[in-house]
Design a protein around this nucleic acid. Structure first.
Lengths: 202, 202
DNA sequence: CATAAATTTGCGTATCACGCAATATTTCTG
DNA sequence: CAGAAATATTGCGTGATACGCAAATTTATG
């Protein structure tokens, strides 16, 4: 059991490639034909893997379509963890978001986002993912502030609020494209209150 | 086409009864055996309807199990609409929530809530429902404040924040049962900012 | 009671998720 | 480098589901 995480062995690289490929194909099919007409069999054929392998990577076509969006979300936690300890929770979260949305979303991101909002089954899958993000963020906030989410409402509330802000900002930005998404996210964060959390106060 | 909505014709009453029955049976089975072991066929048999009929009411067993929770959520919009026009948005939402959680949840509600949080497939279904609520609340807020959600971020943000608050409060209350759910919801709302919305300000 | 409207039902079909065991590939070890 | 160990892919089989469709049943209307 040797752990070299930098060069990333052939095995892991291949897996990631297959995963990304499957996801991309699934997304394209969904955009061209509509989600209900996407067939796992065809995705697998186009990716040169067996249908069974598709289900080794994803439990459903919806999950495959959503996948890259999910991965982007995981970055939020890392970015939050990377924020300096001195800043307030609100500022740290805002800074993390500003970094996360540093570069404006490209065409693919946007079209996928629109697709997700248009197709109920994708919407549901995305909602599921959002909840997962929320939990991860809550955990990271707990770690950062030294307050257990079980003991105190605040960490969960903060996490839920952030996710809500992102959610609302993206939805709004997609409908009425005024300014950059980054700006809209900033607006949302400025209108929202995130209570600071102290380890001692119950 | 006669519209008597008070006495509610036999037809509608029967439908509601069947729906409630199916949902209740589905929930019980899920609690007894776990969601994955719930069989639509058995639910239908116990409710004295055909399996096909089950799928006329619900697209999946998860939807059936969640159903009553979904219905409770619809009340939030009605309650919000019923709030007097003079009060601030934050106060109106808080008041609506205080009414919604007026009577403390009973055993069934709690055990269902716990089940939902324990079972991923139910969790996903609930998340889907939450998004639907959010949209409905956003619409109602837009109506109340006279601001279109397409034009302005605020209504969506407010709706998302409220749902987030409920979400966090319930999650926290289920884990650490300190005080009543009503109180926790109140705490959450007091820690959250809901910007007031004026119809003229863009 | 007769007719119209809506609901339930049975049937058939296209997917799908997933366990399992065999096979192929990559990685590790000497 | 060769064999062994670990891991991934594949094919197969099964149980379950969602849903369109048309016939049969139930409810509503005059």
């Amino acid at each position: 059991m040797t752990m070299d995480s930098s060069p990333l062995g052939l095995r892991e690289r291949k897996k990631r490639a297959v995963r990304a490929n499957l996801s991309a194909i699934a997304l394209r099919h969904a955009q061209e034909r509509g989600v209900s007409q996407v067939r796992i069999e065809e995705i697998a054929a186009e990716a040169d893997v067996s249908p069974r392998t598709f289900n080794n990577y994803f439990p459903s076509k919806e999950a495959a379509i959503i996948d890259s969006a999910t991965m982007r979300a995981e970055r939020l936690c890392e970015l939050l963890a990377a924020q300096p300890a001195g800043t307030s929770l609100h500022d740290a979260l805002t800074a993390a978001l500003m970094t996360l949305f540093e570069d404006e979303p490209d065409r693919d991101w946007i079209s996928r986002a629109r697709l997700i909002r248009a197709e109920p089954s994708l919407f549901a899958e995305a909602a599921k993912a959002d909840v997962a993000i929320e939990q991860a963020v809550a955990l990271e906030i707990g770690r950062r502030t030294g307050v257990d989410g079980t003991t105190c409402l605040a960490p969960r509330l903060a996490a839920a609020t952030v996710v809500a802000a992102i959610h609302a900002a993206v939805a709004f930005w997609l409908d009425a494209d005024n300014g950059t998404l980054r700006e809209v996210i900033g607006q949302a964060m400025s209108q929202v209150r995130i209570a600071d959390i102290a380890p001692d106060a119950a």
